[in-house]
Design a protein around this nucleic acid. Structure first.
Lengths: 201, 201
DNA sequence: ATTGAATGCGAATACATATTCGCATTAGGG
DNA sequence: CCCTAATGCGAATATGTATTCGCATTCAAT
């Protein structure tokens, strides 16, 4: 961000621009979201846009930071650390994931799909670390003696498996496979794997 | 493809163009691979390119068809249907997957990453269907009474989980997690899941 | 050797997009 | 109310890319 918005109107404009960025992303996709279109949609001139952002990348980066907060809020609200068993917990997390992917007119879907060409690794990495932390807490609470050494590997596998399987399924639209089946299948696979004993060394 | 190459020189040119397409993809990524650059790299004029291809999409499509064959060859060579147990079989398949992702200067990596904006759904879908078929055969051979009804769900989950977890890991480059650990973890998760009894209905 | 079809060429054309800059307008402290 | 810094504007500029088309060259059948 080049200049910091000082007056109220400019701060409002920054907000409008981020909203417009989100709208352009859902409507035209990552490639179709151009500075001109975003400015237009925000009801702002391109010149003004460049007054506060270095360009498209900066806009998306700022938008993602805004979204990251919201996701973090949602995750915290999940009863992940309750006394319910791992399977229930996992299923709840997966359902939350699906609901996120369906929300915002496919905004999240578009972002995760394009993870590798986004300005930050925030999308998948942030989720991964989030879950990593939650899992660590979970296992510390429920199985004090849980071997931490291979937890990172498991969480990497689980986070990516779940996230991208969901994304693929939602992307397909009219699949023969119902979402609930996928959710249950993932849950079983993941929960069993997480609870499995460490392999012999 | 607009015109069919008839003479030898034009057939050779088509080959050169596809090679150049692959090279551009690995060197500049999907976005950086432009018709001009591809033509240049192939030592061919743009005009000639358009004589045989409708544009970038057509080039990539043709390239992918060429690659699909190669992948199919590799898959057939795997001893997936041997008498070895499911875990060994799975591990072999995963190792094959990693080796593919490392080959061709990251060409496959770039293609799978960008699955959702490629001309065909070939990348992931073809693999998915391939494995689906292999799995069907496997289970028919080893467990005649295997419940087919939920096999599709399992294969969807397994194929996507494995593929994208591998892609994410290879993309990260210098990860703390070693590739072999990921391969083993995936193998355990997947093999256990595939062999698990069907859930009560 | 001749000749029509096939091939190859690349400057020229047409867009799309990013980004800047000088000028007009407005906010808000004094 | 006045004045300056902040803000807002959008035509103009620069760049990259896709695609075409008329002309030159080569192939291969006769």
């Amino acid at each position: 961000m080049r200049k910091r918005p000082q007056q109220q109107r400019s701060r409002r404009m920054v907000t409008l621009l981020l909203d417009a960025t989100a709208a352009s992303l859902t409507e035209h996709g990552l490639d179709g979201a151009t500075t001109v279109r975003i400015a237009e949609r925000a009801g702002v001139s391109v010149g003004s846009l460049y007054q506060y952002f270095d360009g498209k990348e900066a806009l998306i980066l700022a938008l993602m930071e805004r979204l990251a907060d919201q996701v973090a809020q949602g995750l915290k609200r999940l009863p992940l650390l309750d006394n319910s068993d791992l399977r229930q917990t996992t299923l709840a997390a997966i359902r939350f994931g699906f609901s996120m992917l369906h929300s915002g007119d496919g905004l999240y879907l578009e972002l995760v799909r394009n993870w590798h060409r986004l300005p930050t690794n925030t999308v998948a990495d942030v989720l991964q670390q989030h879950f990593m932390e939650l899992a660590r807490l979970y296992f510390l609470k429920h199985y004090r003696d849980y071997p931490i050494d291979d937890l990172q590997v498991r969480m990497f596998i689980v986070a990516n498996s779940v996230l991208f399987t969901m994304v693929r399924h939602v992307s397909q639209g009219q699949s023969v496979l119902r979402e609930e089946q996928i959710a249950e299948g993932l849950t079983r696979m993941v929960a069993d794997y997480m609870m499995a004993p460490s392999p012999a060394r």
